[in-house]
């Protein structure tokens, strides 16, 4: 089976800055692939390398088995949804969406029917005559999406496409993107700094840091078995256990992770350790409790109806031994 996008030893340096540093990656056909990382971690540069807006300093890249080294963007069967949409301000919605077809020289009547189809797909039928300036952020986002998918690309690149939308709209668009991905069956490569977005939408996630990929795995794997402290910390909400702590509790000195929901609060005197409540954060159906266990900070989820714990209380904790995940990368 071919790979949709292949990076082999790819680097992109800007002067002394190693934006992308010797990355190996293979994205499967039809996959919804997320590139997750903080700003400046190289995820957007990787996307730009796939689109062809940027050229690697070193390494080799393929898209569906064809080498794209030195191939300009206009000769790659890849389309991009830009972060700020990049709609052409002097064209109306229909002209924007038809742009790729017009360039290819598709006959006018076919252009029209395909534009109508694409606008229907993004629920913007009847907006064809509007200018981008007359649309809301969410609508522009849909136009950008229609303009990209109308060309039936092999790979669709999305650069933080939901970043500029408000929370409600973002959640709705997440659903729509997933539906669109299922119905089109093409490879999606999605760049985001929002771990919730990446985990909820993608089939696989690559976590970037400092131009390197820290881990590539399914969202569940990333969440349950982060391979390094960085991943555990960035993907968030997991407790990172220090070697000192694991040594005293488990008898094995190593960095490990333990999810908040795996920790149980037990009656005083029993359990593995005792700790003190440092802060409490009410979040509706649950509360997050921050605890201090002799220098090791731990987060525990407290459900509505659980025994109430106040700041300063002594709390005894327990968990199943197999829930503690020793990280592969101990650096």
């Amino acid at each position: 089976m071919t790979t949709a996008v292949l990076f082999s030893g790819v680097s992109r340096h800007f002067g002394d800055v190693r934006a992308v540093d010797n990355v190996d990656l293979s994205i499967k056909p039809g996959e919804f692939f997320a590139m997750l990382g903080p700003s400046g971690s190289g995820k957007t540069t990787c996307l730009r390398l796939i689109a062809g807006f940027d050229q690697p300093t070193a390494g080799h890249m393929e898209i569906f088995g064809e080498t794209v080294d030195g191939v300009p963007p206009n000769r790659r069967s890849v389309n991009t949804v830009f972060q700020d949409y990049a709609l052409f301000p002097h064209m109306n919605v229909s002209e924007n969406v038809a742009y790729g077809l017009m360039i290819q020289g598709v006959p006018k009547d076919e252009q029209e029917s395909r534009v109508a189809e694409a606008l229907e797909l993004v629920k913007l039928s009847g907006y064809g005559d509007r200018k981008p300036g007359q649309l809301s952020g969410g609508q522009r986002q849909r136009v950008a999406l229609a303009r990209a998918v109308i060309n039936r690309p092999k790979v669709l690149l999305l650069d933080e496409p939901l970043g500029a939308l408000d929370l409600k709209l973002r959640e709705a668009m997440q659903e729509e993107l997933k539906t669109l991905h299922r119905s089109l069956g093409i490879t999606f490569v999605f760049v985001t700094h929002d771990q919730g977005e990446a985990l909820s939408m993608a089939d696989r996630v690559a976590v970037f840091n400092d131009g390197k990929i820290m881990q590539v795995a399914s969202p569940k794997e990333i969440y349950q078995h982060p391979s390094s402290r960085f991943v555990a910390d960035f993907v968030g909400s997991s407790n990172i256990l220090s070697p000192e702590f694991t040594n005293s509790v488990l008898g094995q000195a190593a960095w490990a992770s333990l999810r908040p929901e795996a920790i149980r609060i037990v009656a005083g005197g029993s359990g593995r350790i005792s700790s003190r409540c440092v802060s409490k954060n009410y979040q509706g159906s649950t509360s997050r409790i921050a605890l201090d266990a002799g220098g090791q900070s731990l987060t525990v989820l407290l459900h509505d109806g659980d025994e109430s714990i106040e700041i300063g209380d002594e709390v005894a904790l327990d968990w199943d031994a197999d829930k503690v995940h020793i990280m592969e990368d101990q650096s």
Binding site: A51, G52, F53, P72, P73, N74, V78, N79, T80, F82, D84, A86, L87, F88, Y99, G100, I103, Q104, R147, A148, N151
Partner: peptide, 15 residues
């Protein structure tokens, strides 16, 4: 003229 309009154009196949 934002630079990404030129990128968008080439991304959509324009020479």
């Amino acid at each position: 003229v934002p630079g990404n309009l030129l990128e968008a154009s080439s991304d959509l196949g324009a020479k």
